[in-house]
């Protein structure tokens, strides 16, 4: 499907649960409420006409001024050759979301990375622990208000001048 046809089809499929963005530049995306997050992803991944079976990229962005973290899933369908960007927003303090790892196994590691770098935890995730940073690291580096700890296990984290 072309991207316009896909957008129309998804609008018909999901009804008023979706919000479409009209950005100044770049890609179009679809924003859903975090409660519907898992169900909508499930629907879009399994629907015959969408068949978005490939989770291309899954990441988060921190927006401190909105007090929210935005999760972005880039999905794609090899058979239909179309892609869709699905987004949701969750609050920064209680950063919890449903896991997508049952739908796309690739999400297991992507969610671990989001947990590690942005501090979002995922319900029912099979193996939620830090992936890139050490287990006992303090803080989540990709949050905008992150301050690097001065020493890690007695080792300074910056080069002495």
């Amino acid at each position: 499907m072309t991207s316009e046809a896909l957008i129309d089809y998804v609008k018909g499929l999901l009804g008023d649960k979706t919000k479409w963005a009209d950005p100044e530049a770049g890609d179009n995306f679809l924003t859903v409420a975090s409660e519907d997050w898992k169900n909508i992803c499930q629907t879009l991944a399994t629907d015959k006409k969408c068949s978005l079976t490939y989770l291309r990229n899954f990441t988060g962005t921190d927006y401190p001024e909105d007090d929210e973290i935005e999760l972005t899933a880039h999905t794609f369908s090899y058979s239909e050759k179309h892609g869709l960007i699905i987004k949701t927003r969750i609050s920064r303090e209680a950063a919890v979301c449903d896991t997508l790892s049952k739908i796309w196994p690739a999400a297991i590691w992507y969610e671990r990375e989001i947990f590690d770098l942005l501090g979002v935890s995922f319900n029912n995730h099979p193996d939620l622990r830090r992936i890139l940073m050490p287990e006992d690291w303090v803080g989540h580096p990709l949050r905008k208000d992150y301050k690097q700890q001065e020493t890690y296990r007695g080792i300074p984290t910056t080069r002495p001048a």
């Binding site: 950005p23 100044e24 530049a25 770049g26 890609d27 995306f29 291309r56 990229n57 972005t72 880039h74 960007i85």
Partner: peptide, 17 residues
């Protein structure tokens, strides 16, 4: 301008996005 983009190329290990 304000916005976002996902761009990918076919690298030696496949999609590098």
């Amino acid at each position: 301008p304000k916005g976002e983009v996902y761009s990918c190329v076919e690298g030696a290990r496949g999609e590098l996005g």
